[in-house]
Amino acid sequence: MSAFLTVGNLSAVLRGNRQRVLRSVSFSIDTGEVLGLVGESGAGKSMIGKAILGILPSAIEIIEGEIVLDGQDLQTMLPADRRRLIGATAALIPQDPLTALNPSRRIEPQITNRLVDILGWSKADARVRALELLNEVHIDNPERVMASYPHELSGGMRQRVLIASAFAANPKLVVADEPTTALDVTVQKQILRLIRDLQQRHATAMVFVTHDLGVVSKVCQRLSVLYGGKFVENASVPDFFAGPTHAYSRALLAATPKYTDPDASLVPVDEAVIEAVAAEVAAADEEWRHAR
């Protein structure tokens, strides 16, 4: 099976100081596969998701590399064609359900707009689909939720609405950007299960951005660990949790809380490990600059 999404040698810089923020990133995802992008804040994991969806902030510029979505290279397409392709095949589950929903509009148009505007559905068809989706994300009273405003729903409900809206147009690729960070653990568990079920049922390719290795071990098949916009380790989930190969990944895993093993978890990351991985990133930068 050929990869549904291939990112090759992608580099991006800040327009101001021309510093690289994504450093020659390469990966691919097959249909039905979930790749976890893991790193600390500022590692560039969300940025990769945004680059794929063509929603990078204007301060960041892609300077090299390719993003091939469903066989088409996004970098070489006209902006309008690119937007159409992304809109029809990919979707985002954002981190914060409160800022991602428009507070002054009811839920219904926030789910159906996409179907009407991008896919040209009739309003009536879109409404039927929206109700169906709210059922799929286990919302008991979809009619009432459709007529509600975001502030009338709990955090978990709002996240369900966003998941429904992400899966509305049967996307082949979903980028989930820390979708459960703002939620309680018990709600997080329900939402993760829900995302996993929908992803499996629709054989969606998925990029799952998170800082939580516990979450990765539940929803991903493979993961990449980032530091400073560079992949430092790529591994399958079983291999990684059996023993990561990179010192930085090992340190991240040891820092992750694990209440079943309190003595071997929550170990602060050693300064030396950070210095080593930072040096590795700097060396790769040097090499890259020479090659250009």
């Binding site: 653990v185 018990t186 997080q188 568990k189 993760l192 939580d212 290795l213 516990g214 979450v215 990765v216 071990s217 539940k218 989930v237 079983p238 949790f241 895993l253 992750t256 694990k258 209440y259 079943t260």
Partner: peptide, 8 residues
Amino acid sequence: DAIPLPDP
């Protein structure tokens, strides 16, 4: 039970 441990 709801805490996702780093363990597949």
